[in-house]
Design a protein around this nucleic acid. Structure first.
Lengths: 241, 241
DNA sequence: ATCAGAAACATGTATATACAAGTCGAGTAA
DNA sequence: TTACTCGACTTGTATATACATGTTTCTGAT
């Protein structure tokens, strides 16, 4: 009777994490609310405290809750801004009602760009990459221009899938069992120029937040790369740490 | 013989964390190196694996290492850029040789600005705040303009301390036993205007990365707030997650 | 000499338990 | 009524253990 093996190999702590996360983002628990105590969660889900704590520590990490000794786990300020600095990707952070995704081009298979933003391994280089350009709109105003590069290894039928209003991470997870584990990013402020002006519909010279990310996945040596241009005039980016 | 109570109330896992972190940043372990395995660390420090894992998970969180099942804990790419998105503050991220800190004004006690960047509690409001303006230079070029606001509660002799080339976090920690536990931040790209032009020595209209942070500490209800203006033309900001 | 397979070792998940320490409210004593 | 203590509850730290699962290395049969 040792170890709860879960339905689909998803660990217990992750299921609790996802559930609580969903509830917080959906407003079941609101800002300032106190989550059920660790012991209550244990009883509710028939798991032990270390497992519950594992889940809660992930939520703390996401900045969704704060744990206070003696008090409890308190739901943190949910970003009115757009949370993109967390692992979870853009689509899940802001209400899905407001945020729309639109495909500009792709997904198509191309060769890697000559000078790429990150160093690539020989394996990645020789297998080519899947290229995907999207814009994300909030209230019909384009806020993000997102260029993704994914190594083309063992991703059957990837290019024929529909991405419209779907999270890239969701597709990777549900269809290929690939999860984003973490990553690194570089940030810069740049001036709007060239096609950025057209795509984000801003004036030349407007400050744009530029972001390069390398995301690691649960599949060894498989990374997702992306460049992101953000118009932060009306919506700031939000991050917790 | 239960529980190792540490010398100064600092938990075991934190000591291991700090030690490994120091070693990584000092180059004892270099990029790509494999840390001692969890079991080795257990034997070395006479602690158990969950405790070691607690420490390692913090390092993973900082982006300093990556844990791979079956392989080990591998030292991650140490940012050549300037790591400011991590908890640790600016001074420790880039080599101290290059980065200089210069005080523009303060620390002085003022009233909180009328419209503050974050919501303040009544207690914070009535106690006033310590105000501190600094610039940070890399190779004599100003890169950051940093404005800090700290609630003026129980910080004796704070304003008479010297901050030159010292980390604010270091002072809080060593003199007041206050540690930064985490925080939230908002990011925007803005145009250089007004005094930013003079301070960062950039031309009007240049894109500047603007950052508002609220840092939580080990002291309940005690926060450190800061606004940060960064010239990212030559040095990008770096973050891991 | 080669290669499949087992062993050794790495991290990942989960349980069960114990005690430390902060918070808060109920009840008691002044 | 006020102040204080104490107990019940919270999260924090740490141990000890078991088994799962991915990686590397070495061994032994072919």
């Amino acid at each position: 009777m040792y170890i709860h093996v879960s339905d689909k190999g998803i660990p217990q702590y992750r299921k609790i994490y996802e559930l609580l996360r969903k509830h917080i983002l959906e407003g079941v628990y609101q800002e300032g609310d106190i989550l059920p105590s660790e012991n209550e969660l244990c009883r509710l889900h028939q798991i032990t405290r270390p497992t519950v704590r594992h889940a809660l520590s992930k939520l703390t990490n996401d900045g969704l809750i704060h744990q206070h000794q003696g008090k409890g786990s308190i739901v943190h300020q949910i970003p009115h801004d757009i949370g993109i600095l967390s692992v979870s990707g853009t689509t899940s952070a802001i209400g899905k009602k407001i945020l729309k995704t639109h495909i500009l081009s792709g997904p198509t298979i191309i060769k890697w760009p000559g000078k790429f933003i990150f160093d690539l391994s020989p394996v990645e280089l020789e297998s080519g990459c899947i290229f995907l350009e999207r814009i994300r709109l909030v209230n019909e105003i384009p806020l993000f221009y997102d260029i993704s590069y994914i190594a083309n290894v063992n991703l059957p039928r990837f290019c024929s899938r529909t991405f419209e209003n779907k999270s890239l991470f969701e597709i990777l997870r549900k269809n290929y069992s690939i999860e984003i584990k973490g990553g690194v990013q570089r940030l810069k402020a740049i001036s709007a120029e060239g096609k950025i002006i057209d795509i984000l519909k801003v004036k030349k010279g407007k400050p744009i937040l530029y972001l390069e990310r390398k995301l690691e996945t649960s599949r060894t040596n498989f990374f997702v790369y992306s460049s992101l241009y953000c118009n932060t005039e009306t919506h700031a980016l939000f991050g917790a740490f």
